[in-house]
Design a protein around this nucleic acid. Sequence first.
DNA 1: GATGAATGAGGTTTCATTCAT
DNA 2: AATGAATGAAACCTCATTCAT
Lengths: 209, 209, 209, 209
Amino acid sequence: MPKDTFFNLPPAKRAKIIDVAIDEFSKYPFHKARITVIAEKAGIAKGSFYQYFEDKKDLFKYLVELMIEKKMSYINRKMLANHEQYDFFQLLREVYLSGIRFAKENPRLLPIGKMLANDKELYRDIFGNAEDKSTDFLGQLLEYGKRQEVIDPDINTPLVARMLTNISTSLVDFDYQDSKMNLDDQTIVDQILYLVANGIKKKNFAEGA
Amino acid sequence: MPKDTFFNLPPAKRAKIIDVAIDEFSKYPFHKARITVIAEKAGIAKGSFYQYFEDKKDLFKYLVELMIEKKMSYINRKMLANHEQYDFFQLLREVYLSGIRFAKENPRLLPIGKMLANDKELYRDIFGNAEDKSTDFLGQLLEYGKRQEVIDPDINTPLVARMLTNISTSLVDFDYQDSKMNLDDQTIVDQILYLVANGIKKKNFAEGA
Amino acid sequence: MPKDTFFNLPPAKRAKIIDVAIDEFSKYPFHKARITVIAEKAGIAKGSFYQYFEDKKDLFKYLVELMIEKKMSYINRKMLANHEQYDFFQLLREVYLSGIRFAKENPRLLPIGKMLANDKELYRDIFGNAEDKSTDFLGQLLEYGKRQEVIDPDINTPLVARMLTNISTSLVDFDYQDSKMNLDDQTIVDQILYLVANGIKKKNFAEGA
Amino acid sequence: MPKDTFFNLPPAKRAKIIDVAIDEFSKYPFHKARITVIAEKAGIAKGSFYQYFEDKKDLFKYLVELMIEKKMSYINRKMLANHEQYDFFQLLREVYLSGIRFAKENPRLLPIGKMLANDKELYRDIFGNAEDKSTDFLGQLLEYGKRQEVIDPDINTPLVARMLTNISTSLVDFDYQDSKMNLDDQTIVDQILYLVANGIKKKNFAEGA
DNA sequence: GATGAATGAGGTTTCATTCAT
DNA sequence: AATGAATGAAACCTCATTCAT
């Protein structure tokens, strides 16, 4: 947690520091990121940095926090609040689309998330052994779907929750890396959702007959 | 590529060095991993290290190579060779199971794979801009499935190939992290395969009637 | 060029560092000179060194610069400014004497000059492909002498300019190495000038008769 | 001095080692020259090197010795032997020309000579405090000239001997560096000799009248 | 005599953090 | 609160030389 001195800073200065820090951490892995550079680009003295933050890790933790907060802000709150008005798949669609929107609009934040995946020590430092929130949330969503009788009651909720989380994460990569696929976000998400719903097996229409 | 001197080493010594190196790189991200420690634990002089390897990156590349080689060795070659005797889903099942077996038996190699996935600079250093082999392979498998008329011809092959790769990767995590789920590997894979095939939507038996 | 931090240092400290550095570089050729030793003797942390200088070469370049500056300061500026009041040989005499004075009072700087003369790679690093200033200057002086009708118009200016530069350089050695010759500087210079002017051939007085 | 083992080597191998060593030392200052490279290029084991030479310095000393020997071989022995048949200036001319020939035909040996000038420690290691042979020799030549009544008896022999040595050294540079001067060697040497003999002062023919 | 692996001292450089002003 | 010089641990890497085979 940054020190009080940091929060007492004029907002513009604070923003500058954060902006510059994100820049550095999005370019280099934790141990390569240099606070010297951050201080320089932010136009503050190196000593000042240590009056705002405990140390390098403190800053990084704070960035992760901001990132999570930001990500949350992309979810359509109203929809969640009134989730009973929506179908499971509509909700899932929204979750996925919000993830994509977030990624598109905050590309520099993505590497920060990845760094955590990369560095166990760091991860534990920040989250301890806490569960992954996304998976939890999607688990609840699945339960809701089962109650709605939209989801196959036989599926293993935690397992599928993980799968859905994972798909969400990779959606960002589909999208972020390949413009070559040349599909717009909505199409991709809809295709994925179709597969999630119906699987990839060929439908034999004669079967039901 | 390690130097000849390395390959001329007595196998036990070579193995020791590799073992120690895997240990270090599985604990720390590339830039934090210390060759000093590796040399020490392997019981060799620091100078010797540089007689075996060009530099730190050289060692790391070699570890990646070993990892890939090892991973390949887990795939059931016979099945692939006679793939026409098998159904698409049987083949996919084997691919997934082999991934799990590999992960179980080489847990320390997993972080090395992750490091690559998350450090683009490193990845490019090693593979250049080469495509991801797994995805390629699963793409071909999908096409084979379509020809077999087992896979829905309408699905987007590259997109689904990615998804399947991703599921494979995460399978490892399901399994590796949670013994709590308390399902044996085969059960997990079978459940996943079912979902991949049929989706998570509730089947309405009345529907077909 | 040293960093600002270096120039902000208290003059005494700055002087100490330079003094110690000159000592090291006057004793050892560039690649043998150790910044570890310099830092130690100067009583600063090794890290501090790198806050003052970019690297070893940066320090060395600076020393060369200082040396040149110092050397310039030994030339009698007034004489040069009013050179038309002087004879060519008077001016040359001054050039030579200033060189000797410089050498006598800054003996430790001499090896630094030699290092440059003999290490082309280093020389190019510092001066690029710039011409030697001394030779240029003496060339101009010779032309002046020709206009004055004091110098034989038939001599090859660039060639002789080189010779004169060279003599200047070696004067320092004559003087510096042998106190045994037991001639004071002025005498040596005057003897040399006589030879430069008249050559070493025996004058046959009968000849002109 | 190389060890006996070295001299017992087949001449071709010996020559190869020396050739390669000259190459390395002509490219890099003593402390940067790597015996690893020499061994490699000479096609011998690093261990073998130490069976031929005491150490790096031992090799270098030997190269210097070879260089001196080679240089001596360029002087016209017959002329020296019958020096009484020649004029002082004819002899000096021969000395200078031989220096130029040596330099032209053995360009790689020049940097080795320069390195000695550069590194006092090295120089002392090799020559101790011995006088410079060239200067000695030219001193004797001058005395001979005086006896011949060709050289001005008033000149300071050691001083002029030094000057002449120096001019010899720089001749190589004139020649070696600048093709731009576009004079052939003989012309340059003759011009220099004229200056050495008669000086650069304008001759006033009216004077003698 | 030949080999080449092993050694380890030593070098340069980086950078998070401290601390005096 | 702000500064920025000072610190020094620690990292990577080089290479002359030794030594066992």
